[in-house]
């Protein structure tokens, strides 16, 4: 912790080109995804422009490379700040600051957890489903705007996160840890969760089609026959109730570690059986 202020004082020898190259590499964070170190090799490659610049001897370079071939895993979209901070730490170490390999390692691991905790639900749980659902709603009508909107909106946000995350991490160096444990990130996560849950609620009722034409009763009303089906009863209670029930059931089963592919096939089975018996249409 003593080295915190000194990392701010050091003059960076990294060139614009080094930083940009790191940014480009960051877009291939999962290229060598493997079960042993997940993004371990990728993180090492992210650090290559920095290591090449700040360490002069082969021995120092080899040490640094080995240091960053260890296990690493975070939502790719939010790897920027971690890479940035690590670049700052390596630069500090190369310039003789009192930073040992262990400190660098614990910074990586320390940032990895909270950022993955934000990155997974925000990127995969909120941002992509919402943009994809928006794009899909246009695409099912045959509009080319659907794929375009999804592709450009998602990538604009993703690239901005990578670039500014990297710059923030690098510029703020060690001080970033304070930011992560501070107020901004939990606020962002909670806000995104509120938005995401609300939109999911809308999607469940709007985009699920379940029709249960099972006849409950047939009554005569002034010569006209009124057919009451399960569907008409449910619609009077609240539209979309079967979809809600099914979603909650799926959430429960997924939490019980049932494979989603099995659930999808089971629902196909329900569809075929229900259609065959005339309960579903």
């Amino acid at each position: 912790m003593m080295s915190m202020s000194s990392a701010e004082e050091i003059v960076s020898t990294l060139t614009k080109r080094d930083i940009f190259q790191t940014f480009v590499f960051e877009n291939f964070q999962q290229a060598s995804f493997n079960y042993e170190t997940i993004h371990g090799l990728a993180f090492c490659v992210d650090m290559i422009p920095t290591i090449r610049r700040v360490y002069k001897t082969k021995e120092d370079q080899a040490e640094a490379l080995k240091r960053h071939l260890t296990f690493f895993n975070v939502t790719p979209g939010v790897c920027g700040p971690i890479v940035g901070v690590t670049m700052a730490l390596e630069e500090g170490k190369a310039q003789g600051e009192n930073i040992d390999a262990g400190t660098i390692q614990s910074f990586k691991v320390g940032l990895m957890g909270p950022l993955a905790g934000v990155g997974d639900p925000v990127m995969w749980g909120t941002l992509r489903p919402i943009l994809a659902a928006l794009g899909a709603s246009l695409a099912v009508k045959g509009s080319w705007m659907g794929p375009f909107l999804f592709f450009f909106a998602f990538n604009a946000i993703r690239l901005a996160l990578k670039w500014y995350g990297l710059k923030l991490g690098l510029n703020r160096g060690l001080a970033l840890v304070k930011d992560v444990s501070g107020n901004l990130l939990p606020k962002l996560t909670e806000g995104a969760t509120v938005l995401g849950l609300f939109v999911m609620g809308v999607l469940v009722t709007k985009w699920t089609t379940i029709n249960i034409p099972l006849v409950v009763s047939k009554t005569q009303n002034g010569g006209k026959e009124v057919v009451t089906t399960i569907q008409t009863i449910l619609d009077e209670l609240c539209p979309g109730l079967p979809a809600l029930g099914l979603t909650l059931l799926m959430m429960y089963l997924l939490r019980k570690k049932v494979n989603p592919i099995i659930l999808i096939f089971a629902l196909f089975g329900v569809g075929i059986l229900g259609y065959g018996l005339g309960w579903l249409k």
Partner: peptide
């Protein structure tokens, strides 16, 4: 026919 019906609500797994 069953696949078409199921296609209407299979999305719930994704939602879940």
């Amino acid at each position: 026919g069953g696949l078409t019906v199921a296609g209407g609500f299979i999305v719930v797994v994704g939602y879940a």
